[in-house]
Write a protein that binds this DNA or RNA. Sequence first.
DNA 1: GTCTATAAAGTGATAGAC
DNA 2: GTCTATCACTTTATAGAC
Lengths: 208, 208
Amino acid sequence: MARMSSVDRRGELIHAALRVIAAKGVAGATTRAIVAEAGMSLASFHYAFTSRDEMMRELIAFVVENETNAVFAEIDFGRDIRETLRNGLQGYFLNVQADPGHEQVMFELLQYALRTPDLADLAREQYARYHAAVIELLHAAEKNANVVWSLPVEEIARTIVAITDGLTLAWLADRDSAASARVMDFAADSLARLATVSEPVRTKEHVL
Amino acid sequence: MARMSSVDRRGELIHAALRVIAAKGVAGATTRAIVAEAGMSLASFHYAFTSRDEMMRELIAFVVENETNAVFAEIDFGRDIRETLRNGLQGYFLNVQADPGHEQVMFELLQYALRTPDLADLAREQYARYHAAVIELLHAAEKNANVVWSLPVEEIARTIVAITDGLTLAWLADRDSAASARVMDFAADSLARLATVSEPVRTKEHVL
DNA sequence: GTCTATAAAGTGATAGAC
DNA sequence: GTCTATCACTTTATAGAC
């Protein structure tokens, strides 16, 4: 087989590992399954990585890094803040339904990280990134709808992440899409209450 | 070693397995680790269970069955519905903080069930029970605070389970107790809005 | 750098003595 | 019923030919 730079091979193995994990779970991602998926020999794995643990650490760092806010990025700002929130949540959820495996993998990797002492920092970072992504979104929504949040955005972001995680877990278990959609409606309503119409910037004579 | 009825030995092995899972995760719960914890020989395991899979199925059914609403059972009804909700959520969360391993095990078992085709029904049942337990609580709170819920209790229950699951996952990752507590306060406020003061049963002359 | 072959340890499950 | 010993297999990791 053709030569390949070390970084390329590492990346290729990580992507192959992610495909294997999606199909068979973390437990099924053996070095043999991964090299078979990548079309390499077993020895090539250990040429690229000193151990399976090392690869798993790099893999988790990779997914945490690349857990794009793609879902949120393509958010559809509606007429008001409630619609923005609703669109964001429903958009996220459509994505979960379209590719349930992806979120399941993220949950599995989170638990793997929580179980592996060396990887605890990655679990923390994973949530820091989720929260940061949502905070950014909340600021964008704030500007777009001309409102200000009456609670710290950190707090609102944590609530949104909790709702999406919780809804996703329950949906993965019972696949009740209708019930999940209604919960998101309620969540959007409740969160929208936290936005108050911002005073437009005016001169002093305009009081009330 | 003394003889033991088959059901006793199965129960003992399941409890030993739960201790092993708490300490080392589902992946670490090998038949050898389990019998070592239970103080039995490896052969005894296969005398009680035909296979490890059979035991895992029974173990999950057991924890789902016994995922008592203990947390919720000892709920402290406050002065009003908001306090009841707040006490319920904070009470649950104190329990998570006191024994983080327990919830982590529940999440791991959920994912194990989701990955094992034969066990998908157990995952569904797990959430059906969570939802049912919270619904029962919502009815109790309704009576206690003399209010009626303006949304179907199924919907409210799903929201509460989603919030608790989501908060627990984030807390397991970053251990930010203060932030979690604030989210629960907001959740209690939002949910309390769904309770409207119920019309006391009166005769017709009392209009408004 | 990439391969085959194999080492060393761990896995679930079973046979057969007692 | 309970044990020891072992089978058959899989795992990660490495040695050594090319």
